[in-house]
Design a protein around this nucleic acid. Sequence first.
DNA 1: CTGTTGAGCATACGCCGTACGCTTACGTGT
DNA 2: ACACGTAAGCGTACGGCGTATGCTCAACAG
Lengths: 204, 204
Amino acid sequence: MPRPRSLTLEQLALAALAVIDRDGLAGLSMRTVAKELAMSPMGLYRYVADREELEGLVVDRVLGAVDATPPPADTPWQERVETMAGRLRDAVIRHPGAIPLTVIHRHHAAAGLRWSETVLGILAEGGVDDVRRVVALRALHAYVTGAIQLEHLGALSGDGTAVIANLPKDRFPLLAETARTAGAVGPDEEFFGGLRLILRGLAD
Amino acid sequence: MPRPRSLTLEQLALAALAVIDRDGLAGLSMRTVAKELAMSPMGLYRYVADREELEGLVVDRVLGAVDATPPPADTPWQERVETMAGRLRDAVIRHPGAIPLTVIHRHHAAAGLRWSETVLGILAEGGVDDVRRVVALRALHAYVTGAIQLEHLGALSGDGTAVIANLPKDRFPLLAETARTAGAVGPDEEFFGGLRLILRGLAD
DNA sequence: CTGTTGAGCATACGCCGTACGCTTACGTGT
DNA sequence: ACACGTAAGCGTACGGCGTATGCTCAACAG
C-alpha cells in the first residue's frame, strides 16, 4: 500500500563495494554509500539496521561470487580441495579493500556455508572422517583466511621482504637469508605451496 | 634542557592495552587512552605521530611477551615448532581485543622477527631448505594468524557451531553432521591438530 | 636569576554513526 | 475521481572521533 522501495539490498551492496574498490575500506561510510546511491544518509536505514549489517551485505556479495559446485570428480581429491581454495581466494582478492570485512563477517554469509559443504564432501570422498574432517576443514579455513590477509598486507615478493633482507645478519642470520630467497617466490607458489602442506598432512 | 617527559612509550602501550582489555578494541581512542593516563588527548601526540603508531606500540608489547628462545633441542623438531606456535598463540590470546591489531601491525613488530628467526632455525635443523623453508614459514604464519582469529570469532565448541548443526539437512547434510561432531572438539585439539597437518606435510 | 626549549593543554574543525520526527509519494478502497 | 493509510526517504541534531594549530609554563643550563 505505501510507497515502494526504490532500491534492492543488492544495489546497496554494489554501491558499498564500489566505494571500497575506489577509496578503500577507510573511505566506506554511511554517508559515502548514500552519496553513491544519490540518497540521503538516513535513507539507508530503511534497508539496514546499522553499518555492520551493510558490511554483511558486502561480504555476502563478495563470497556469493564463489563457485561452490563440486569440481569434476575425475581428479584426485586433494586437487579438488585446491580448486575450492583457489576459487575462494580469487573471489576475495578481487576486492582487496574488503578483506577485513570478509574475515569478520564470513560466519554469517550463506555463501561461506555452501563452500564448506562442498569442501566437506570432497574430504569425505578422500576418506577423511569425523574429528579429522572437522579439524581439516577448520585448518583449511584458518590457512586460507590467514594466507589471503598476509598476501594482502605484503606479498612475499614485496617491499617488506626487502626490508627484512637488510636486517643485521648477526641477529637475524636465517631471516635475512630467507628473505632473499623469498623475493623470488610468487603469490601462487606461496599460496598453493602452503596449502599442499596441509593436504599432504591429511593423506595417510 | 627543557622539561623532561613524564611518560615512557611502554606506559603508553600499557595504558592502551588496559583500555582494550577493559572496553574492547571499540573502546580504544586517543581520548580514552589519554584519560587512562590522566593526560589531555593532545598530550599523546608528543609521544606518537598518530593513532596507528600507538597501535604499533600495543602490538610490540603483546608480541614482546612471546618467549623467542629456541626450545630444548632434545625434542623432535616438529614438536619444537609446535612449542613456538603455542607460545605465540598464548601471548596473543591473553589480549583477545587486540587480535585485529596484531594481524595488521605484526610486520613492524621486532618481536615478530625474533619469533620467525627461531622458527626458521628449527626448520633448518629439520632439513627444510631454501624455497621450502620460505613457504613453510609463511604457511605457519598464515595458519597461526588465521586460527587465532577463527578461535576468537567463534570457537568450534561455541554458539556458531550449534547454529550450523541446525541447518536444513537437505541442503547442508555434511555441514550439519560435522557441526555436531565439532561441538566436542576443544580449542587446543583444534589448534594443534591443524598445526600438525602442516608439520606432517613438511616431513619427507 | 634569567633565557631557552619543548611538554602538555585548550580550542576548534571536519568527519563519523545514528536517534528522532517530519514530509510526501504511492497503492488501494470507495 | 478522490481521499486515506502507510512507510520511504529526508533534515536536523548530538555525541564521539582523529588531529591541526598555537598557547602556557615547568624545568634545567648558564
